[in-house]
Simulated assay, not measured.
Amino acid sequence: MPRPDTEILVEEVIKRSSDYKNPTIVDVGCGSGAISVTLAKEIEGSRVYALDLMDTPIKVTKINVKRLGVEDRVLVLKSDVFSNLPKDLEGSVDVIVSNPPYIKDEVIPTLMVDVKDYEPYEALSGGWDGLVFYRKIAEDALRFLKRMG
């Protein structure tokens, strides 16, 4: 079940996507696919690229994409951030969304048991300062986003 911050993120993307007709959306670090699938179901005509580096999240996302009937609108790719996103998407993505790991590595052992023992370490670890994935995403996001995306 998505956490409240994920729900807020999805609601904001849905609201802001109303400006785009048939938007192209990239979900970096798709995890279970909750964000990708919800956006595909809620935003008419959207095309969503769900990216993750780990095999288990990719498998889970593919299961959820099929189970919820959005196979025609969600493409799941194994990718380290944008590394395997098709090059023809450069300059044409309307929305990049991500809820990446943001917890400093040194803090993870102090988290509540229902978080640190439930979530995979990779889903929590944002590196030494919690911002590793934010930097990786920011490095290439402008290359893929269209003007005003």
Rank of each mutant, 00 (worst) to 15 (best):
V115Y: 12
D72L: 11
V26P: 00
T61G: 01
D80A: 07
P2D: 08
I8H: 09
W128M: 12
T24R: 09
P4T: 06
E42M: 14
L89I: 14
D129I: 12
F133Q: 10
L142H: 11
Y134Q: 01
K136T: 08
N64Q: 06
D140G: 05
S79N: 09
D5S: 11
L77S: 03
L142K: 13
V97E: 01
K116H: 07
S46P: 00
E90F: 06
S17I: 08
G91P: 01
S18M: 15
T61V: 05
I35T: 01
K41F: 03
V81K: 00
D94C: 04
Y49P: 01
P57K: 08
D88L: 05
E139Q: 13
V95K: 08
I137K: 12
E7H: 05
L85W: 12
K41C: 09
V74R: 02
T56D: 14
N64D: 02
V65E: 02
M1S: 14
S92P: 03
F133T: 04
V10M: 06
T61K: 01
M112L: 05
L111W: 03
P23A: 14
V74N: 03
D105C: 12
S46L: 05
S18P: 02
L89R: 15
P101Y: 05
I58C: 02
D72S: 13
K87C: 00
A50E: 01
I108S: 12
D88H: 13
L51H: 02
N99W: 09
K116N: 04
G29M: 04
K87D: 12
E119T: 02
L89H: 07
P109I: 12
E90W: 06
S92A: 15
